[in-house]
Simulated assay, not measured.
Amino acid sequence: MNDDEISVVYLTMQDLISNRINENIDLYNYNITGANGFTHKIVDYNATTKTATIRMMATGGQDLNNKEINLSISSFLTGSNKFGKFDANVNLAEVSSDVNTIHLNMLQIPGGGGDNFDNLKEKRIVDILKPDETNIKLPNISFAYISNIGFIDDKLHVQVKWTKKETEKANIDDHGTFLLISDKKTIYPTNIEFGIDEDGNSKYGNGYSEYIFDVNKQMVSCYSLVAENFATNSNYIEGNWQVSFSVKAVNSSKKVDCDINIDGIKIKSVCLSPLGITLFIEGKKADDTDIEVTVPSIKNRNQNFSKFFDSNHNNQHIIKCVPIEPFDIENIDVIYVNGFPVNLFNELILSSVEVIGLLFKLTLEILTGKVI
């Protein structure tokens, strides 16, 4: 199913001959034709039938309306061990600016991300920390450690070595990131993936990650270095699974204007569809602000929403919050945004049959002078 922002697909995967699928299954290489911005989450696992139910989501939902698409999966991971946020136990006030560096060719790396990544690519050659100058262990993490940390050009660099990514039995998707967190602000890094040859020079590979924060030595003591989303896996399984089907649009939605201000974030309208709640925002982007949407319980079931994306579209910020499964919006007359009520009772976008019914009722009222 799709609405104006996203497409949602639910699929089940069942192992008929072995025990290769469990509650930690994580799709690795997969594709939905015509869609982009994929993400997925396991929403149910039946241990008796060895069946996992997975929700897949993609942006650009309106472009897939009534189209025949193909979903393909060529590999997945199981045996994942995931870690939430935890303090990296690094005293940032003691981090030095006197560090050894090496050159990295940005055209010879597998990838990276973050707000400053494109600027680094334009430079082509950048300085990074010399690998393995330190060995700072991360709490409860055995598959990675901080291999160097320091300031380069007034920016904090934190380098991680992934100990099993370039071994004979490589852990394909070991990953994680860092944040700088203070009482008032969270700073996200730009990250670079790279490898190191036997002589200590950079090469193509993913055995190391370098996280670069736009914060200098004078500012950094106000922050804590926090690790987030670290995960490792034990099984990498390849195959060729695919299915084709047609994507159907949602048949109704509720949209209403509003005026909610949350720490400078101005929510001007809200749209509710069976696939989730969309917030249309003016002003600053909502990256660092917690925004929680809720609806009254439906048949004694609470709906929990998570943020799928926060993007800029036609000079307007859009936040899409999604539930675990599609839900019936017909009897939902109000939603809450950080506790602020938004009334939707008169904003249902009606079907053509309902519109004809209302026009017929209005005509009778006019002809008879009676209210029906």
Rank of each mutant, 00 (worst) to 15 (best):
176 G>E: 00
176 G>M: 02
179 L>S: 03
181 I>V: 15
182 S>M: 03
182 S>R: 10
183 D>V: 06
183 D>C: 08
184 K>R: 12
187 I>A: 00
187 I>V: 10
187 I>C: 02
190 T>S: 04
191 N>F: 04
191 N>Q: 08
194 F>T: 04
197 D>F: 01
199 D>H: 10
199 D>L: 03
199 D>Q: 13
203 K>P: 11
206 N>H: 12
207 G>C: 02
207 G>I: 01
210 E>W: 04
211 Y>W: 11
211 Y>Q: 09
213 F>S: 00
214 D>T: 12
214 D>V: 06
217 K>M: 13
217 K>V: 11
218 Q>R: 10
219 M>I: 02
220 V>Y: 06
221 S>H: 09
222 C>S: 11
222 C>F: 03
223 Y>G: 10
224 S>N: 10
226 V>G: 04
226 V>I: 15
230 F>W: 03
231 A>S: 14
231 A>K: 15
232 T>L: 06
235 N>L: 08
236 Y>C: 05
237 I>R: 11
239 G>K: 11
240 N>M: 09
241 W>Q: 05
242 Q>S: 15
242 Q>I: 07
243 V>T: 11
244 S>P: 08
246 S>M: 11
246 S>Y: 09
249 A>W: 05
251 N>D: 15
252 S>N: 08
252 S>G: 09
252 S>F: 04
253 S>V: 00
255 K>Q: 14
257 D>L: 07
257 D>K: 15
258 C>F: 07
258 C>W: 10
260 I>T: 08
261 N>K: 13
263 D>N: 14
265 I>V: 13
266 K>T: 03
266 K>N: 13
266 K>G: 05
267 I>H: 12
267 I>E: 01
267 I>Q: 09
267 I>A: 08
268 K>W: 03
269 S>I: 00
272 L>S: 08
272 L>W: 06
273 S>E: 00
274 P>G: 02
274 P>W: 01
276 G>S: 04
276 G>Y: 00
278 T>P: 08
280 F>Y: 15
285 K>F: 08
286 A>P: 13
287 D>L: 06
289 T>P: 12
289 T>N: 07
290 D>T: 14
290 D>H: 12
291 I>Y: 01
292 E>C: 15
293 V>F: 05
293 V>T: 11
